[in-house]
């Protein structure tokens, strides 16, 4: 081997596989196995110029461990920082949880299509989230809140198994107080018996949705696989067009840029053409879910 042309540094490289050095500036536990990471490019100027769309993802690289895709949980409307919400499930996340504040990790991206904001602007929005599904949808949620006047009516339905497992619980309690959106929370079980809001599955919340113009609504869902069937049925009952029902999908990825092949579904790559798909995509592309 010869030739050491480039060293991972503050600026993005011409080599799309080259991880960019970023610093973990804050980490905190959201639940026993889900951790929140705030990450920033080492170079502040670069940090401020970072641009992405809600629904996009980044490849996180740990030297000696590997690389995995993670949804971005922060919003581009609050520049300077990338946020991730990560569950400890495998080798890479297992190692990532050992990384302390101030340590350096490799990050590259953003990748994927993200939510079609340009189409969604001016519409009513209904966001339905379960469990870790909050990772990508928090980005959209915060984006809409930061650009509230560009969107119509706004509903957020959030479900978790228990109050303790509700990610960003405090944040959602605050959002719930706002009067420019309707944020409804529910838990399947409440061992503490202290939960002040709805108990039951997230679909129980649908009757509380009033005055939504279905043709003019974009509905998004992200959560555990079992949720999709029931929630999509509710969307359809409301009369929301199939191409305006959006979901983000997970697949194995080694590159994020349509090279490694693993996320192929029919003629598309989840990393390039997704991870955000419409329900219509799901219906006409076999194999999607």
């Amino acid at each position: 081997m010869t030739g050491n042309s480039q060293i991972a540094a503050s600026a993005p490289s011409a080599n799309p596989f080259m991880p960019e050095q970023m610093r973990i500036v804050r980490r905190s536990d959201l639940t026993s196995d889900v951790r929140f990471f705030q990450v920033r490019p080492v170079d502040m100027e670069r940090a401020l110029s970072l641009d992405y769309k809600p629904g996009q993802f980044m490849m996180v690289s740990l030297a000696g461990v590997g690389e995995s895709p993670f949804s971005i949980s922060s919003t581009p409307s609050r520049p300077g920082m990338l946020e991730f919400c990560i569950r400890k499930v495998g080798r890479l996340t297992g190692e990532l949880f050992k990384y302390k504040e101030n340590s350096i990790i490799g990050v590259r991206g953003p990748y994927g299509n993200g939510f079609p904001l340009e189409k969604m602007i001016g519409h009513d929005i209904l966001i339905v989230v379960g469990g870790l599904g909050v990772a990508p949808l928090r980005s959209l949620l915060l984006y809409i809140l930061d650009n509230r006047d560009k969107f119509g009516k706004f509903y957020v339905l959030l479900g978790a198994r228990t109050p303790a497992e509700m990610l960003f619980r405090k944040e959602f309690f605050e959002i719930k107080e706002r009067d420019d959106l309707e944020c409804l929370l529910t838990v399947d079980n409440d061992p503490t018996s202290q939960w002040p809001f709805n108990k039951g599955v997230v679909t129980d919340l649908f009757p509380k949705i009033k005055e939504l113009d279905p043709d003019n609504t974009f509905a998004t869902i992200c959560g555990p696989p079992v949720m999709y069937k029931f929630v999509v049925a509710e969307f359809l009952k409301l009369g929301i067009p199939k191409h305006q029902i959006l979901m983000t999908l997970e697949r194995r990825m080694h590159c994020g840029i349509g090279k490694c092949g693993h996320c192929a579904i029919g003629s598309i790559y989840t990393c390039l053409d997704g991870p955000v798909f419409s329900y219509w995509d799901v219906l006409h592309m076999k194999d999607l879910i």
Binding site: M1, N4, S5, A8, M18, Q21, I105
Partner: peptide, 9 residues
Amino acid sequence: DRYTEAFED
């Protein structure tokens, strides 16, 4: 934590 491109000659 630093990566260097390993281009073969």
